[in-house]
Design a protein around this nucleic acid. Sequence first.
DNA 1: TGTGGCTATCTTGCATACAAGACAGAAAGC
DNA 2: GCTTTCTGTCTTGTATGCAAGATAGCCACA
Lengths: 247, 247
Amino acid sequence: MQDSHTSETTQKTIEETIVSGILSARIRPGTRLSENQLATLFGVSRTRVREAMMRLETRGIVHVSPRRGWFVVEPSAEEAIAVYEARRVIEAGLLRSMRVLTGEGREALDAHLNEEKSAMAAGDRQRLTYLMGDFHIRIAELSGNAIIVDILRDLTARTILISMLYQSEFHAAQSHEGHCRIFQAMQAGDFGRAAELSVEHLDDVEMGLDLTARPDPLSELRSSLSLPPRTVSATVRPKNHKLQRSN
Amino acid sequence: MQDSHTSETTQKTIEETIVSGILSARIRPGTRLSENQLATLFGVSRTRVREAMMRLETRGIVHVSPRRGWFVVEPSAEEAIAVYEARRVIEAGLLRSMRVLTGEGREALDAHLNEEKSAMAAGDRQRLTYLMGDFHIRIAELSGNAIIVDILRDLTARTILISMLYQSEFHAAQSHEGHCRIFQAMQAGDFGRAAELSVEHLDDVEMGLDLTARPDPLSELRSSLSLPPRTVSATVRPKNHKLQRSN
DNA sequence: TGTGGCTATCTTGCATACAAGACAGAAAGC
DNA sequence: GCTTTCTGTCTTGTATGCAAGATAGCCACA
């Protein structure tokens, strides 16, 4: 989606900066996103920051606590399950709908898997997080369907936020192998098998989560008392250290 | 995701009013949505209208032509194909992921199919349009996955816009039968079959479109002169589809 | 008749002003 | 010491003002 309107450039940049920050695990769930700070950071007024926030909110990336602030979402356990379920449905459906793996497609995935391998060798965890999510986006790109790509990108972003909340350790090697298996099935032209493997792979990742480790240990009590949701960590927060999380 | 913040009520109403207007085919593709008019209509300032527009834009319902105005999207032929492809992928994946049809699920779908029948008898075309789209949303609701429901609702809205642009006549009876067949397969517990039928059904509907009847008869000239496009593109490759633009 | 250019008036783009809720921390009362 | 209340300052919510592009219509002129 190329836009020739320079006027929208900045706005898209705010959105994309945040999303790519999440995709590469540089922005943690619960991060406060102050309109003022973002405005000065991007050299625009709050108006445009708000517009970006609204968009991100409808994409499920960010939420607002009225008169308290914008925060990167902290998916609940239930939401986490829903995200994985949605990904299984869409990714399996996508693979099953594929008929051929083109030469460029093969090359793209092959190159990607090599990147994964080298990132593993280098122990570059942030890059690894990014690549592990990006694999699925690349598969979506093979379909050439921009709608599905956009959907899966946003779901992947949420997945990464979920990982940061609930994943105790990071089984990169296991994920990498899962990706390789999917790729092999695709190369063999067996997309039904690839779909099955994809479901298994997502199951594995989901299984590796500790969904009992809640982001907010008080959430049960809090909601039963119908108190406002908790304010969470502030990575960028110059003066007011009031709202900080303990980790 | 229900919100308890009354402050957002109005805003959501603007969004939902427009979406439900589309879902029931009361709002046509290309309709101009003036910020000022909507603002006075809803008794708010342009600010809030703009926010609603931004949200609708990220949902693919509306687009803005800079300094000219907001318009309900008029999907191009390529976008139309992409929407149907995405729906096939997601709906088939969804059905295939289902394991049981609960009693309430059966009742809900049965009730819905009866509504379709009575709307057909009454010849209520607008209501019929709404119901034909809503069937698929109801199936999504059976999954209990709010993410998938939201995605399919927006895709259904786009589908209806596509119908209004490209569908010469409305084969309600045919669609209704397709729905019944899907329902039967689900009742029989054969969700794989239901998925296949769903794909076929969407193929049928797509086949009934005349994608050569362009919404913008000048688009060829326009693009050959590389003037700004009338709708923003989603890059999609032409498939094995009938819509070959032969010249 | 047709063509170029001016202008009035639409439209959105964006910044800003002010209202008002939410909190933290100090002050006051017990 | 403990609670309560107040107050300053942070935050977002919303309206409004102005800038500037886009368009249509008019008019002059060839």
